[in-house]
Amino acid sequence: MAPERITGRSLLYYLFLSLPLFAFFSSIFIGPFHINPVQLVDLMASKILGYATDYPDVYSTVIFQVRLPRLLLGMMVGASLSVSGAAFQGIFRNPLVSPYILGLSSGAAFGAALSLAFLPGVSIQYAAFFFSLLAVALTYFMATTNRSTPIVSLVLAGVIVSAVFDSLLAVIQIAVSERALQSIVFWIMGSLGTASWSKIYGAFPLFALGCTVMLLLRWRLNVLALGDEEARSVGLNPEKYKIIFIVSASLAASSAVAVAGIIGLVGLVVPHMLRMIFGPDHRTLIPLSLTFGASFLIVVDDFARAGLGFEVPVGVITTLVGAPLFAYLLRTTRSGGWE
């Protein structure tokens, strides 16, 4: 629902909702191979309508096999991490929480490393996906006592589970060859450089499922954010909704991490920036996290792939951009602490 009172603000709301279009159409022209808008439209139309063009094959390859999958994957990953970050912040009642708080990233890193080092038959994506969800599940069950899951227990359990998977990862890193170690380190940094249509097809269903659930139930995050007892007294079962949101946010974030590695701080910074502009109402925050997150990541990735003349993993850039921003927000917003 759009903010209704101030028209300037609702204008800004629709602008932010349409950001992915702008980001997409400016990013698709960025890169060493030059393509102009007329050529792009012509190529797109020929692909869709199935007529032949006299452009060399390289045009089609650059657009359809390199840039398009990379942009689409980037948008999907940015959206997943941002929406699940916003949802996690809502259920934790804390704006300084990321989708990785329950051990998801440590589990994914361990899974990817396991596949890279010892299980060449198991795909990296599947291993990362499986272990990221395993880590979240372990955290959840560790934190649950007497059918209730206090937030503080979840945070503590998340720290423990993350530490365990980090240690197991270290064991793998010590045991493997230098070559495998290099791949592990590179995977952990997070990159969109290996984007492909198969990765998009693989990650899309769970991304779509997780994000749809969070979009549909987003107002209930407002109810949940007031506290367990306050939620229960208006008839919302906090434990049930905690599970629903943790599962859908983790599915979306895990599918993102599985295809792109650990891209840091997007899930934390994007919702936070939006909250500063539009306020904390999840009815606006969740849809905007989807669109702004998608746009943010592909724009940052533009710098990662074309800004320095050589490819830098986008996870490195998001962290380098995100950390100062985060420090600034931490020091200027009053709502930084625990409830």
Binding site: N94, V234, S335, E339
Partner: peptide, 20 residues
């Protein structure tokens, strides 16, 4: 207890009472 986490507007807080 009066918990507050995010700076929801007072109206958004009251609106959560419509949950049932």
């Amino acid at each position: 207890t009066q918990r507050s986490s995010f700076p929801f507007t007072a109206l958004d807080i009251v609106l959560t009472g419509r949950m049932p």
